[in-house]
């Protein structure tokens, strides 16, 4: 099984980070950047993140995996129908990629190709179901596979979203459909993670809490206004406004989040958006 699944099974507190494929074919910077990710269990490779067209995450994840970096391949339903999704998953398995983060995906409206036709042939629950089927040796129409993939499928959740019961019924569906771990949307308040972990307890599926490095109050307000599912609370906005060194404040906030996440859940997912050099300071 994957290193990530072994670490989670062993009760180790895992740390994941993420890298975006380039817009273009030059993989050198991404392959070099990932070496800077010290103390990381696995690296998420994002899939046309924010609906911005970039190189296939499968291609970058395959190269990283071959270079010895543990990856979590992100796959969204926005750009592929059920045939393309199955095909890419089998391709990922052929490259030795096991960890998956299976997502619906941000709407095309938000990205650099707003005129594109969004696909959403499947939703994230159905994508998980299909992945479980592939792992059992069958495609979506029940045809047997010659060579069966071994995956460690994960899913996403926004633990702070309301109404909580509505969000949680989907989490339960994802677990029923084979989600073996969760990575969360950026989390800012201990209470919301506590509430979520209490609900998760009977399901016994590890949770990796999303920690976003915010660099300034301006960035925080931009996130609130423009990024679906991200709400930086007022108390943190005030903290940025008071701070003489906003980056230092952002690192301190991320460090505090990691510290209470250690008490509550099974890992953290660091979103440092180009400031990967700050990861050691956040994990201090």
């Amino acid at each position: 099984m994957s290193y990530l699944s072994d670490q989670l099974a062993a009760g180790q507190f895992v740390v994941t980070a993420e890298i975006a494929p380039p817009k273009g074919t030059n993989l050198a910077p991404a392959l070099a950047d990932v070496k800077k990710f010290a103390g990381i269990t696995a690296v998420n490779v994002t899939d046309n993140q924010g609906a911005n067209m970039r190189l296939s995450p499968l291609a970058l994840a395959a190269q990283l995996q071959q270079a010895g970096t543990e990856t979590i391949l992100q796959l969204t339903c926005r750009d592929r129908n059920r045939m393309a999704l199955q095909s890419d998953l089998l391709g990922a398995a052929a490259f030795g990629i096991e960890n998956l983060l299976l997502l619906s995906g941000d709407h095309s409206k938000f990205g650099d190709h707003p005129d594109a036709r969004p696909v959403f042939d499947l939703d994230s629950v159905q994508l998980l179901d299909m992945t479980a089927g592939l792992m059992a040796g069958f495609d979506m129409v029940g045809k047997p596979l010659n060579g069966v993939p071994s995956f460690f499928p994960g899913a996403a959740v926004n633990p702070a979203a309301e109404p909580f019961e509505l969000i949680f019924q989907k989490v339960a569906k994802k677990v029923d459909s084979g989600a073996r771990f969760f990575q969360t949307q950026s989390i800012f308040e201990r209470d919301s993670l506590e509430r979520f972990m209490a609900a998760m307890a009977p399901l016994n599926v590890p949770v990796i809490a999303g920690v976003l490095l915010i660099r300034s109050g301006k960035m925080a307000r931009f996130l609130n206004d423009n990024i679906p599912g991200v709400q930086v609370p007022e108390s943190l906005l005030e903290r940025f406004d008071r701070a003489r060194d906003p980056m230092a404040a952002g690192i301190a906030i991320a460090r505090e989040t990691v510290s209470w996440a250690r008490d509550l859940c099974q890992g953290v997912h660091l979103m440092t958006l180009g400031h990967e050099d700050k990861i050691p300071a956040i994990l201090e």
Partner: peptide, 12 residues
């Protein structure tokens, strides 16, 4: 997104 199993993560 025409989802069939509940809301996406973008619901606020």
């Amino acid at each position: 997104k025409g989802l069939l199993n509940g809301p996406c993560g973008g619901m606020e």
